[in-house]
Design a protein around this nucleic acid. Structure first.
Lengths: 146, 146
DNA sequence: TATTGTTATACTCTATAACTATA
DNA sequence: TATAGTTATAGAGTATAACAATA
């Protein structure tokens, strides 16, 4: 255990918000994925389930647009949530379905939301509410520049 | 073009920094990937090339640790950069290699760095230097909570 | 014509496990 | 024993293209 401290490597992108953001986002995602594994959900699947629970009767096209998930990619997610008995489709339109959580899906969504909230507190709990507000406003400004 | 405004869907995670961060990071990544495509590099490959250019003679294990890329994942990246004539390996240790940019690799790294800097300005240029500093400090605090 | 859902396919990034060679 | 590099493999997540059915 000589524990030689490793000389840190330098790089210009270390000072880039884009890079640091990406690193933090990846680490937080992995942490959340671990925590959600006990519910059998990935972070993305959890957001899909939660938004259906909060907005019953919406179509998967609208849900996809709200989460920036393409139709082609959300189709198998919806199929998986249905297979697992978490949501059900109720044909209304002939070419689309109204989506609803089952009782099991609602219970899972509530637990997943608790997990997400707990991780949010764990990672960002040290920030003041002032800082949190500023953080969100900066994210919003950055997104509007894209 | 009746442009009916789509009713926004609600979800508790919309107020989570973790979620907004992920969305911003994904969008910024896609934007950067587009811009780097003309150099034939992905964002991750660009960071690997750049860190080799700034730290000549390092091994891929140390580079991987600096970027949080696993040995198993960085091996094919190094191989690709070498195939394209951007870096070269110089055996030193018997079980590892010192990595160096070729002239072509250095030129590509410089251009890639310009592209990254331009995108950084585009996305985060509206933030004041005070805000940028605070943003970085918040990211650092969040990362230390993981 | 435009939209919805679907399938096929490919790419990027990440993760684990197992192997060889060397320190 | 620990480390470096490599290969195989799997899993998320995302992207485009094409298709049938419906609006």
């Amino acid at each position: 255990m000589s524990e030689t401290l490793e000389k840190p490597l330098t790089a210009s992108f270390e000072t880039f918000l884009g890079y640091q953001l990406r690193r933090l986002s990846a680490a937080a995602m992995a942490d959340l994925a671990d925590a959600l594994a006990e519910e059998g959900l990935s972070p993305t699947l959890a957001t899909v389930l939660l938004i259906i629970e909060t907005n019953p009767g919406e179509t998967q096209a609208r849900i996809g647009r709200a989460l920036s998930i393409k139709r082609a990619n959300i189709a198998p997610m919806i199929a998986k949530l249905e297979e697992e008995g978490l949501i059900r489709k109720s044909g209304t339109d002939g070419r689309s379905f109204a989506l609803y959580c089952t009782a099991k899906g609602t219970a899972t969504a509530r637990r997943a939301e608790k997990v997400m909230r707990a991780r949010e507190r764990k990672v960002f709990g040290a920030l003041s509410s002032e800082e949190t507000k500023l953080f969100l406003s900066m994210i919003e400004r950055a997104r509007s520049a894209l």
